[in-house]
Amino acid sequence: MDSVAHRLSAVGAGAALELRGVTRLFGALAALTDVTITVRPGERRAVLGSNGAGKTTLFNCITGDFPPSSGTIRFFGEDITQFPPYERIRRGLRRTYQISALFPGLTVQDNVYLACRGVSRGRFSFLRPGQNDALMHATENLVQAVHLAAVKDQRVAELAHGQQRQLEIALALAGAPRFILFDEPAAGLSPTERRELIEILTSLPAHIGYIIIEHDMDVALRVVESVTMMHNGRIFKEGPPREIESDPEVQELYLGGGHE
């Protein structure tokens, strides 16, 4: 509905995310080599690439789960390369994990509440939230938004896979995100759940940009406006979805490569 230009003007100029020469080594293995990416605020982008291409590692470097071996990362102009993960999150960065990283011992509601609490004040509060606590309302809304209201008092360990994936997304939407990294959110979802996922992604406010890692081209191409192709830890192609889809090199390496 809204054009790229419209979104840009809504947020202002300058890059949301800017990676320069990011390299990450695991011992002798270079999982990322000299990656340079610029993402505008509000931009929605897919990262594609075969297994082991370094997509998740790219996310880990951006969030600080694993710091890059070299290179710099800027988030809305600020150099966050040396920041611990929680400082980056507090600045509006969010992520989901490819393998659900939830709190199995807590209920759905507590999981989401923690996410809301993590990006607001009072993380160390010794006072229980009251009925009219603003964060409790935010939690309720978020639980509702990802269709988990029916199971909100269940322990996460008892949820079905699809529900866990949904909760994973809810955790990334808490607070006021400015930029979100989705790591294969659709993996293992049923067609209905996929539709719900697409709906959630497309109904995000226009100023929230994201990068999504997604193997399913049908999902990926419906929710993004640009695509980055990765292979062996390097970026080898960037462009709008149509262009990428029809690129012969990409076809050979990835789309025709029988990755399924």
């Binding site: 600080g64 789960d65 996410a115 607070g175």
Partner: peptide
């Protein structure tokens, strides 16, 4: 339960 995820929540 998951300290890495906690860091990724702020």
């Amino acid at each position: 339960d998951n300290s890495r995820r906690m860091a990724a929540l702020g």
